[in-house]
Amino acid sequence: MAKQITTINTASMADIAFMMLFFFLVTTNLDVDLGLARMLPPIPDENQQQDDVKVNRRNVMVVLINSQDRILAGNQPIEIGQLKEKVREFILNPADHPDLPEKEIRDVENFGPYPITKGVISLQNDRSTTYDTYMRVQNELIKAYNEIREEFSMQQFGKPFIKLDEVEQKVVRTIYNQAISEAEPRDVSKRARR
């Protein structure tokens, strides 16, 4: 009699593996977390004297969102589409306009002296502002900074910001530092809370 070879039927093996595969597909989340990274200011020390440096009026732009989700930038009501241009103008101040922030020539490490703006954007909101509007404003502010950084990288290094090496990226970040201050919460509406 010929040699008898018994093979195990492996057809169901694939089914078992498929079952496990589907289990993992259902129970896992592959979505990457995306978001706007921000840094909160530390709580000011209560014992510390409130001797904050007198900030020049021209160096601050207040972006205010009221309870009706209307935006006020630099004391002017503004539409969200115009906000980016306004912020750009505020940061760059190309014509050295006396109403826009002053610049100070500072020595940037690995780059040399460069006029750095002293402008700060102060973002304020009401307690009943919707989060959606707040995020859209945040997004516009960051977009303005990203655009300026992009242009600066192309101009100075001839490469987009993302292709720069770490040292160069740090230079760009130092020169156009995201100075967005999320102000201490307070009621911007006239009536009292609740």
Partner: peptide, 22 residues
Amino acid sequence: RMGVVTDVKQELRRCSALKIVY
């Protein structure tokens, strides 16, 4: 509404958890 978000942000500042991602 931003009210509750502001409260959370203030509490995070008090715990010095300052790095946040929206």
